[in-house]
């Protein structure tokens, strides 16, 4: 674990992999450190924002080293089930890239247990981990200028649901009507980091 200063009010904690990030994120949410005001997980790092009248990078580094990183499972959170019509434009391409029949792609996407690891790219765009390794396909060479709200997509080691219409380069394998992003709701996303997620197939 590396604790790096990031300005006067944040530390960037670098970990060896995403599992450790999820573990530390869950641990610090369960047992907060004094003076910490915000946690922002990403692929290999956790940004820890703090009140510098209360704590500092050196003290946080010492406290973090003493703290065993617990499991990532967040038992306080209910699993989110997302109903998907597997009718995505890139489904056949994913099948040929992975060397699997289309049906098998769908079944493997449905079978996996996912966890929202972190958000980025756009408000509410959650990177879900847990994708079956056979479905780790690269992004499209040229991104689409318009991907609709509710597009269910995969790229690299991640799965995602586009929370709003936006440009996007991920491979679209299906669509959902689940209200993943709703500005009137608190929190606005169904897929906050740490949330366990399942995809459920529905027929179009």
């Amino acid at each position: 674990m590396l604790v790096l200063p990031c300005g006067e009010h944040s530390a960037l904690v670098e970990l060896s992999d995403l599992t450790e990030v999820l573990g530390l994120y869950a641990t610090l949410r369960r047992e907060p450190l004094e003076g910490v005001t915000e946690l922002v997980p990403a692929a290999r790092t956790l940004l820890v924002r703090f009140d510098r009248t209360v704590t500092g990078v050196d003290r946080l580094a010492a406290e973090l080293r003493e703290r065993p990183v617990g499991p990532a499972e967040d038992h306080h959170r209910d699993e989110v089930k997302i109903e998907v019509r597997y009718d995505g434009e890139d489904l056949e391409e994913v099948a040929s890239l992975s060397g699997l029949p289309v049906r098998e792609v769908v079944e493997r996407h449905v079978a996996a247990a996912y966890t929202s690891a972190f958000c980025g790219f756009a408000p509410g765009f959650a990177y879900l981990v847990g994708l079956d390794r056979s479905l780790w396909v690269p992004r499209r060479d040229s991104p689409r200028t318009r991907v609709p709200t509710g597009a269910v997509a995969i790229a690299d080691e991640y799965a995602a649901v586009y929370p709003r219409e936006s440009p996007g380069g991920w491979r679209i394998i299906g669509h959902t009507d689940a209200p993943v992003w709703d500005l009137e709701r608190t929190p606005p996303t169904l897929l906050a980091p740490g949330t366990p997620v399942r995809f459920v197939e529905v027929t179009p």
């Binding site: 990031c6 300005g7 009010h9 944040s10 960037l12 922002v40 997980p41 990403a42 692929a43 290999r44 790092t45 940004l47 924002r49 980025g120």
Partner: peptide
């Protein structure tokens, strides 16, 4: 670099 959180003023 894998994407990581960043702050205003970075």
């Amino acid at each position: 670099l894998k994407p990581e959180a960043t702050v205003t003023g970075a």
